[in-house]
C-alpha cells in the first residue's frame, strides 16, 4: 500500500532514477534543488512520462512501461497541490474548488464543499477571485480543490515554501490533520529538515551525484521498506 515507485527519466544533461516504496501516511521527498523532486511528482501525476519503470499507488498501477500502462493525468485521481497554487484566475474561489468535483463521478466524491470549507476555514472566500487572495488563502483553496476532485492520494510540492512563519504554522497543522484524518497517502516535497521530520513517516532522499538522482530510502517509520 502507499507509493510504489520505480522510474527512470533521461532529461537534459542528467537522469532521474528513483526507486522506493512507502506505506507511510506522509512520505517526504527531500533533496537539493534540481535533483528532480518536482519532476518525480509530475511523473506520478502523469504530467511527465518516465522513460521506463512502474508507478503504483495503493496497489493501483498508474504507469508500467513493461505492461504498456500509462493512465492519462485526468484518470489518475491524484490531488496535486502545486508550489505556485495554479488557481484558475478567471473563476472565483467556489468555481475553483468545484472544478474537479464537478468532473468526478458521484461515487468518487468523498468530501463535500461545506466539509472542505470547514476543514480549511475558507467559507468566507467563496465569492472572491483568486487574484484577491493572500498566499495562505490561495494555498488553502488549492488544497481544497485537490481534495474535492475525488483524489485518492495527494502530491504536495513545497506547500509551505512561499508563506511567512505564521501561515506556515497554520498550514502545517492543516496538513497534519489531513494526514491523520483523511487516510490519503501523501507524497510531500520539501527541503526543509524541520518540516520533514515533523510531518513525514518516511523520508526519501533524492540526491544528485554525477548527474544521476537516486532515491535513497531513509526510513523513519516502521512501515517504510527500503529497496533502493
Amino acid at each position: 500500500m502507499g507509493f510504489d515507485i520505480d522510474v527512470f527519466l533521461q532529461r537534459g544533461g542528467g537522469q532521474i532514477v528513483a526507486r522506493f516504496s512507502s506505506g507511510a501516511a506522509l512520505t517526504a521527498l527531500s533533496g537539493p534543488s534540481g535533483s528532480g523532486k518536482t519532476s518525480l511528482l509530475d511523473m506520478v501525476a502523469g504530467l511527465v512520462r518516465p522513460d521506463a519503470g512502474r508507478i503504483a499507488v495503493d496497489g493501483k498501477v498508474l504507469f508500467d512501461s513493461a505492461a504498456g500502462v500509462d493512465l492519462p493525468p485526468h484518470k489518475r485521481h491524484c490531488g496535486y497541490v502545486f508550489q505556485d497554487y495554479r488557481l484558475f484566475p478567471h473563476r472565483h474561489v467556489e468555481a475553483n474548488l468545484l472544478y474537479g468535483w464537478q468532473l468526478a463521478a458521484p461515487r468518487d466524491r468523498w468530501i463535500s464543499l461545506s466539509e472542505v470549507c470547514e476543514l480549511l476555514g475558507i467559507g468566507h472566500l467563496l465569492r472572491r477571485m483568486p487574484g484577491a487572495l493572500s498566499g495562505g488563502e490561495k494555498q488553502r483553496v488549492a488544497i481544497g480543490r485537490a481534495l474535492l476532485s475525488g483524489a485518492r492520494f495527494l502530491l504536495m510540492d513545497e506547500p509551505l515554501s512561499s508563506l511567512d512563519a505564521l501561515r506556515r504554522a497554520e498550514i502545517m497543522v492543516l496538513i497534519e490533520r489531513i494526514r491523520d484524518d483523511l487516510g490519503l497517502p501523501i507524497l510531500y516535497v520539501s527541503h526543509d529538515r524541520n518540516e520533514v521530520t515533523r510531518l513525514a513517516g518516511q523520508i526519501v532522499h533524492l540526491g544528485a551525484a554525477h548527474g544521476v538522482a537516486f532515491a535513497t530510502d531513509m526510513s523513519q517509520g516502521e512501515q517504510g521498506k527500503a529497496c533502493a
Binding site: A45, H74, H77, H90, Y99, G100, A146, S149
Partner: peptide
C-alpha cells in the same frame, strides 16, 4: 501551460481543458 496541467490533474480531459481553461483565458 501550468494552469492547463493543473486542470488535467483535477480530472479534465484535453478537450475540457481547452473549453474551460484555454479558450476562456
Amino acid at each position: 501551460h501550468k494552469l492547463e496541467a493543473a486542470a488535467r490533474t483535477l480530472g479534465a480531459s484535453r478537450a475540457r481543458v481547452f473549453a474551460t481553461i484555454t479558450l476562456p483565458l
